[in-house]
């Protein structure tokens, strides 16, 4: 193996990884709702991807492979903090609301409400939902990333979206609407 061609592929590899970072970070943030942790998880996943580049047999599947690594990093993190619990069923109970300045308040409020609702979903549902909605992975790809059957992907997505929809409807109902007389 010529050393020089390693260089070219390593550079290409590094560039693909760099390009994938924003997507990984976005999803990591949607999962944990903690910018610093999301950044750490993204960093950890990228470093692991660099180390284990040899395990990726099909470069066209790089994206799902990266998200699978990210998911394992997060699960490891959760397991270290909740050793006794079923990770997929974990849900955040207490969450600090986003502090938002007065300007742009309504938009921020909607965003914060959705993020809170997403964070309240059990981990399993949260992961399926964000991978489908934010990264547009197919159900089959999500099954591969999380190592679960496609039927489980569908039922988790279904339950997650239903919970989210109900939550958002409820929030709308309790927010006083300004009416024009």
């Amino acid at each position: 193996m010529p050393i020089l061609s390693l260089l070219f592929h390593s550079r290409q590899w590094r560039q693909s990884l760099e390009a994938a970072r924003p997507g990984l970070y976005r999803v990591a943030y949607a999962w944990c709702r903690d910018a610093a942790l999301a950044d750490d998880l993204t960093q950890e996943a990228t470093a692991k991807a660099l180390e284990r580049g040899d395990q990726l047999r099909d470069p066209t599947r790089m994206k799902s492979w990266l998200f699978a690594i990210l998911s394992r990093c997060w699960h490891d993190h959760l397991r270290s903090r909740h050793p006794q619990q079923d990770i997929d069923e974990l849900a955040e109970e207490h969450l600090a609301g986003d502090s938002s300045p007065a300007d742009d308040f309504e938009r921020r409020q909607t965003v914060a409400r959705v993020r809170t609702a997403v964070a309240r979903l059990p981990v399993g549902q949260r992961q399926v939902l964000t991978l489908v909605d934010l990264e547009e992975f197919s159900y089959a790809e999500v099954g591969e990333i999380l190592g679960i059957p496609i039927g489980t992907v569908m039922s988790r997505l279904c339950r997650g979206r239903r919970a989210l929809r109900d939550e958002l409807l409820r929030a709308e109902a309790t927010t006083p609407l300004r009416r024009i007389k």
């Binding site: 976005r26 909607t110 959705v114 993020r115 964000t130 909605d133 989210l164 958002l168």
Partner: peptide, 9 residues
């Protein structure tokens, strides 16, 4: 709901 999630992130 899907649009909300996309928008939120």
């Amino acid at each position: 709901t899907k649009e909300h999630v996309r928008h939120a992130y």
